[in-house]
Amino acid sequence: MEKRKFARLAMHSDTNIKFNNTMYSGTVRDLSMKGAFVTTDVLIPVNETVEVTIYTSSTPNMLCDLQAKVIRSTEYGIGLEFEKTVLD
């Protein structure tokens, strides 16, 4: 049974993830109102807080800049839950 409260939007957008004062790159694979899954080579432990900047895929402009908590970490990437959005 699906537990998500918000629909996911499949996408392919560049992102930067700042963790422990280091910037890492990744790609947003899906996005919802409260979270995202980012493919990245860096393994960030669950429950850590990161800063996420997502860029639009058609231009180098920033789409959003948010804080998020890592809620899943796999060999393919990390699942993020946004701490606060403009809708909160």
Rank of each mutant, 00 (worst) to 15 (best):
M33N: 07
V46L: 06
F82S: 05
G77V: 12
A68M: 08
N47T: 12
V52E: 00
K84Q: 14
V28L: 08
N16Q: 12
V50G: 04
E83L: 14
C64K: 04
V86H: 08
V46Q: 12
L9R: 10
F6N: 13
H12D: 15
C64Q: 13
F37P: 01
G77E: 09
E75R: 08
V70F: 05
T85R: 09
S13Y: 05
D65W: 03
V70W: 04
K18V: 15
G77P: 05
R4Y: 13
E83H: 03
S25N: 09
I71R: 10
K5F: 14
P60Y: 07
K5Q: 15
T53V: 14
T27Q: 03
K34C: 12
N20M: 09
D88W: 07
Y76F: 10
L87I: 12
E75H: 06
R72D: 06
Y55W: 05
S73Q: 05
G77I: 11
Y55R: 01
V42I: 15
R8F: 11
R72L: 12
E51K: 02
I17P: 00
L31M: 15
A10D: 15
C64W: 00
T56N: 13
K84C: 06
E83V: 14
R4C: 08
R29H: 11
H12L: 09
N20D: 08
C64D: 04
R72K: 14
V28P: 01
